[in-house]
Amino acid sequence: MSEIFGIPIQAFMGQLMLGLVNGSFYAMLSLGLAVIFGMLNIINFAHGALYMVGAFMAWLGLTYLDLGYWQALVLAPLCVGVFGVLIERTMLQWLYKLDHLYGLLLTFGLALVLEGLFINIFGVSGQPYSIPDEFSGAFNLGFMFLPKYRAWVIVSSLVVCFATWYVIEKTRLGAYLRAATENPKLTQAFGINVPLMVMLTYGFGAALAGFAGVLAAPAIQVSPLMGSNLIIVVFAVVVIGGMGSILGSILTGIGLGVIEGLTKVFYAEASSTVVFIIMAIVLMIRPAGLFGKEK
């Protein structure tokens, strides 16, 4: 059997794939956080909870309404997005003039409330969500078996991330977004409805978290705590990539997922801390993050 650095190639490639899958989730979630932070100046601690709500919507849809995976993939993000818009209109919009800390506290509180509600109703144990038939089985790549669903998670999240990046960096709407992020008052004085954009941005970030939640449902068990398990690593990703950088959050998310996966192969004990070690090193060398700009 062939080996890489003394590790069987199957084990190596398997962990690399798992790393890419985790990295895809990190990328989607940190992208949403970055977009929201740029526009609203709010560190959205409710992001993990919104991801969990997305996964639960898929599960609830399947269990009670007989809605399949594909319907959930469209409807759940929409519902979470609308929920995000409601949060922004009823709560967040009153905090923009205050310190960052208030937005952080409010969203942290929201996350606790949402998790509490779901734990109360569904308990802490996970709900199974089976992989849709189209994705059962695996591709035989010769040197390894690649489960089809994992391939789908990686591909679809890459498509969503780069589509978001493209819209923000290359289109007219994106130019409005970048302008409103940089100088909201002046941008509004040019006739652009900035408050509306802020509201939709939060809704979009929430929808992205919901989308990631649906993607995660068949891969991980659907549980009220799935968001808080993931979000701590995602915040580390955002810090490493640089707060507010779009491309930075995507690349860092995928990269760290891979590093975490490979650490499992070489030194499994460090796999859950490696991200934080990297965070500490990056903060020492580049306090604004790898892709961030000093302010």
Partner: peptide
């Protein structure tokens, strides 16, 4: 009226600090 509604009535503003966007 909010700023954007006033601008939409046909007002153009060239601010003292010029307000050129670095991200554009």
């Amino acid at each position: 009226l909010p700023s954007h509604r006033i601008a939409q009535l046909g007002v153009g503003y060239c601010p003292e600090e010029r307000g050129i966007y670095a991200s554009l």
